[in-house]
Design a protein around this nucleic acid. Structure first.
Lengths: 193, 193, 193, 193
DNA sequence: AATGAATGAGAGTTCATTCAT
DNA sequence: AATGAATGAACTCTCATTCAT
């Protein structure tokens, strides 16, 4: 039942991308140093440049990793049941188990404003997520899981905004984050499954 | 109708702080260069250090400026009427007129995770804002402006999270932002004033 | 019996030179900062440049001050008696009461190798001192104060070298310095007066 | 007949330290510039920092080099004969062949007053030297090389002071230096070997 | 595939000096 | 006579990148 990550044919490349991911989560773009990344991966700085000709490309790999991580976790695959609630549960788990992911998402969100390449990828992910939630809302309404269904478009936007906001305010305690998300669910009129 | 900002006795210092504010909004901490700040203010780099002995202190001034800008705008002057709605209107205006402020808030939010000094100031501002909203919610409930009053604490948290989130997703169109905030108001059951 | 320093018509200029003298003794040429000098004298940095158009000229004033201090103390004025012993007593007093003077002399000695202006002034002072000692040695021999008179030229050179050396080894304890100078006197066969 | 210095495995590092040594002798601490050092070694300034993370560490290497140079030359290999005379001959040779060494020693002597790290190393070297001379004096007395043996402690102090002084007065001609040292030997009653 | 060594461009900071008042 | 403000040049140090091996 493990995620069965297909073993990449380039383990060293992946190790570097993962190290960069950690470093980005910890120090932000402001403090992201290729030397530190190489050190964490246990290789020479020149080796890093062998796999990633430029820092930009390394960042690209981090971006892909983060997006994939985010999408794969939140994609709802299976069929019936209160999928919207499942999605929220997934979010909560992500928030608890992978705080790094949200740190990285925050960094990417801000950088998207300045970097066209990141902009597009990030926008796609946000849009996909929003459409997913919209679909879940429609299904939930159809299946009678919502007390008072509203405009799924607007509601999906609110969900995305609230979740991102709750995660990107690093001065908040985890309890405050949970509180906000629980209230979000309540405001949607989401019944217990 | 602007607050008639009292002209500071240190116009050059203020000009530098403002230039740094702009540069931070535009390039983020990652791309904040003292030389660029000095250039935008039209002074030599040494002049910048005459007023701000270190980059850190310059950032401190930017931080103060941003926080003051944020607080002063969102502080409710009091008086009666549907203050909660007024607050939302203020937010919307801020969002429209001062996009830079939110870019800066985003940068500060992320940096707060790594910089203790920023952490405290930022946390204070967020807390103050949350408490303000909570008070407004209580008043609104008391005055009958809310259709179905809920837990003001949780609701305030949701509002802060959603607004911050809506603003810190720079890949979003303004319309999407408005949509999210409108839905937020709707979810609170806020009647028109 | 005080040195009766003629009160300079430029007290502020003198105060600056004196402050520079102290700063030079404390931080050496390496750490001599005009701003610190001005601060110690309690004036603005621009005021310093009003009196001393350049740092070089300020150093010139310090040099003059140090040389005058050195010469005036070691010049033997009066007539008879064991003047050589008096000179050594004067040296010992100088060493005890004005350690700064030797710190400054050390700095100037080293700088003399690189700065022609300092070179000449410093060389003159050293030569004058050497000739003074030579004269004292000749007189002492004539008056029977020396057990076994030798070559006054060579002896004078040794005295100057030894005294300068003893003073310019800042890692030495005062006792070690005294020891060296006492041995110097002994080696000259200088009888007690 | 040179000591056949074992070629260091880090020639570039040594070249940089040597260049710094020259620069320090020529321009003093006051005028010691890392870029000049790098230029003299024929490398980029970044290369200097590759070997010496900070200027301080570069100075440390210079310090070590100078001390080793000084000690190795003055260390008496032992064996019999008039070692004290041999030591003086060694000093004279050093003075003639390596004037730079004394310029550097002078700089270090002055800096020792302000820099604790240099202070200790310099003090150790001076102490070692003094004790060496003391031992030579005792041996010379025992072997009948001294006409009238005195207090070896005081005499050793005088020797150190006089030699350092003779060398650290850069305005002196070589002949004057020789004169002082010859007189020093004479005052010790050192017979020709 | 991997590295130690080297680099150019540029960062923040310092300092003697100048200028308008 | 004195100053606050301003500056150009230069400093140490950093970092992504490259090259020879």
């Amino acid at each position: 039942m493990s995620p069965a990550v297909t073993p990449s044919p380039q383990p060293r490349r992946d190790a570097l991308a993962l190290a960069a991911y950690h470093q980005l989560a910890q120090h932000g773009f402001e403090g992201l140093r290729t030397r530190e990344v190489a050190a964490e991966a246990g290789v020479n700085i020149a080796t890093l440049h062998y796999y990633f000709p430029s820092k930009e490309e390394l960042i690209g790999a981090v971006l892909s990793h983060a997006m994939q991580r985010f999408r794969s976790t939140l994609d709802v695959a299976d069929g019936s049941g209160n999928q919207l609630r499942t999605h929220f549960d997934g979010l909560r788990r992500l928030l608890r188990d992978e705080p790094e992911l949200f740190a990285v998402m925050g960094e990417l969100a801000l950088r998207a404003a300045r970097d066209p390449a990141i902009h597009d990828l990030f926008q796609n992910t946000m849009d996909m997520w929003r459409r997913t939630i919209k679909g879940l809302l429609i299904n939930a309404a159809k299946d009678g899981f919502l007390e008072a269904p509203g405009d799924p478009d607007a509601q999906a936007s609110l969900v995305v905004a609230a979740v991102m906001g709750a995660c990107m305010i690093p001065v908040w305690q985890p309890t405050r984050r949970s509180e906000a998300i629980r209230e979000l669910q309540r405001s949607l009129g989401l019944r217990a499954s």
